[in-house]
Write a protein that binds this DNA or RNA. Structure first.
Lengths: 336, 336
DNA sequence: ACTTGGCACTCGGATCAGGGGAGTGCCAGG
DNA sequence: CCTGGCACTCCCCTGATCCGAGTGCCAAGT
């Protein structure tokens, strides 16, 4: 009985604190929420919750603030994620439907997500390792120079200028093109790389050169850590802790490697992961929470997408938005 | 005689203020700079400069701060832009030389520029209107569906999935491809669009469909306003005015259209444009300066690139960095 | 065994006065 | 036209005071 009320108190505190950004006291609590008990009772509960580590007091004589542990309990005890309104769903659909290519999908998602959550949104580009080669194209730029274009199943395009060891006539170019496509098209990246590397030493130099460049392009780690970021302006709402919190985050947003570490491994689509404060991998961001999920085919997430914000954030709303956007993105990519 | 000294005083004030971010007084001035006059003399000069609108006092009894007009004079009277050190030049070269494609060049430039200037850097992608069509590629995805890939001279790649009104066999595809390339390859975008649109009604439906999609892709204004932004973390150094200055800027950095307006028309490569405070087109950014220049072939700039920062910035250094980076980017693009 | 009202206590934050100091303007003399 | 001197003006820092929200605890009530 009391146990239940304590959870209710914790929940109320979290909600109020998220809304007001100020430590919440016993009196205000009973007023704003329909708790049918006196402030004194709530005080006892709060003392107990503090004892167990779910709350803290900034000062001896101030209201209570949830700890990371408190948020964690709050999130875990969320019954169901509240579904988005019909209007929001429609907005998502219409916003994403106009996308013309992969870049566009990612850009729109990131913007959409940041607007829905009023937070910093991060969308990782589909991982190379999960995609297959759709086509390889060679365009002659000069007799000894060509442009190799690599098109992947996810819609990603890589291109490289290749200097040839010897001039190549059109016929040779066509032959080379079909040889490369024969080896790589339809294959998963890892296999395609292997196949290209195997294109033996017995082949003419030009083949080797081009195959190597393509294989390198495919294994380029740089392109495996591409992310899009949006809504950085929402950081301005961080309020205080400017130098200690906002600045490192702004820096991280440009360091994609750090950002990806912060986002963590792509989880299976459908499951929304919430990392609260110090639960994350980077000490500096101990007052930052991350809400992510994977997107792409069910058991085989292409990459993750999510939101980064202050520990004091609207978890239910954020989780709902992240999940919804992931779902739509998955569908869009499926169609293309 | 006094005229010259006044300029010297203004210059000294600008330098000190930029360095310390605090109003500068007469005594500190004569000490830190080798002015061979007394503080009283400097005070007279300052009073005159204030009279003419080059300086202001935050409070009756505080030091002086340059006005926009003061910065303007300072910038105009800069003798020569101080050249970068050899080390810096080397850094630029090595930083940009590793770029593999257009995206990479732009990304690296933006990062480089923000690091050199410790400011927010903005690089516009080469304008579509100045580039030519290098190649058009069609890849069959399904009998009635193909992927059209458009490769431009600047290295930009656009792709679209096209649903065909009728199935297309390989031979037709090859014919279609060469017809499209014949019409568009080598042409400036505007001409290519026209040529594609002309691909007459007498042609089979598939041709029309694909040609239209390509023409649309080329005239897509969305892609004409692409920019890359970097160094947003440097905004953290804005110090005070957080909500009034940093926030709108952060927002603008995501609104590429606004950002481009702020950057202004691409100026001829070689000329560095400085827009100080209220000289800019957007009232909200009246305490923000913009330093830009064009890049690309001499008289025919592809696009602009530059830096956005507080009016109180190191103009000589910033101008030098912007010019140097533009120069290198031009060279790199020329080679590719 | 909880809950409740009462009460003393704590402590942060707002408010205010006072003093120090940096900087100015002006004037009279070089 | 430059310079030293001097009175004056505010800004801002410091310390003291006060107020009130909020707590913890206790004793009484259900």
């Amino acid at each position: 009985m009391q146990e239940e009320r304590r959870i209710a108190v914790l929940r109320a505190i979290v909600q109020d604190y998220v809304a007001t950004e100020e430590p919440v006291g016993s009196k205000a609590l009973v007023e704003r929420h329909g708790l049918n008990v006196s402030p004194a009772t709530v005080r006892n509960d709060m003392a107990a919750l503090e004892e167990e580590g779910y709350l803290t007091q900034p000062h001896t004589s101030a209201g209570r603030v949830p700890t990371d542990k408190g948020y964690r309990l709050f999130v875990d005890r969320l019954g169901s994620v509240k579904p988005l309104s019909a209007a929001e769903k429609r907005a998502i659909a219409s916003f994403l439907d106009g996308a013309v290519d992969l870049d566009d999908v990612v850009t729109r998602s990131v913007r959409l997500l940041s607007q829905l959550t009023r937070q910093v949104a991060v969308v990782q580009y589909p991982t190379l390792s999960r995609s297959t080669v759709r086509h390889i194209e060679l365009v002659a730029l000069a007799p000894q120079r060509l442009l190799a274009v690599l098109i992947l199943s996810t819609g990603r395009v890589e291109q490289r200028v290749v200097e040839l060891p010897e001039p190549l006539v059109d016929d040779d170019l066509a032959r080379l093109r079909s040889r490369l496509n024969l080896a790589a098209t339809g294959e998963v990246i890892a296999d395609a790389v292997a196949a290209l590397r195997r294109l033996g030493p017995e082949q003419p130099d030009a083949t080797r050169t081009v195959a190597d460049v393509l294989a390198d392009a495919m294994s380029d780690h740089r392109s495996d850590s591409r992310v899009a970021v949006g809504g950085a302006a929402n950081l301005a709402r961080y309020g205080d802790h400017f130098d200690s919190a906002v600045r490192p985050l702004l820096e991280a947003l440009e360091e994609h490697v750090v950002l990806l570490k912060l986002m963590g491994e792509a989880t299976a689509a459908g499951t929304v992961t919430v990392r609260i404060g110090a639960e994350g991998p980077i000490e500096e961001f101990s007052s930052t929470s991350v809400v992510t999920t994977g997107y792409g085919p069910a058991q085989d997430a292409l990459a993750s997408l999510g939101v980064v914000g202050p520990t004091r954030m609207d978890y239910p709303g954020t989780m709902a938005a992240v999940r919804a956007v992931a779902r739509y993105v998955t569908r869009i990519l499926d169609e293309a």
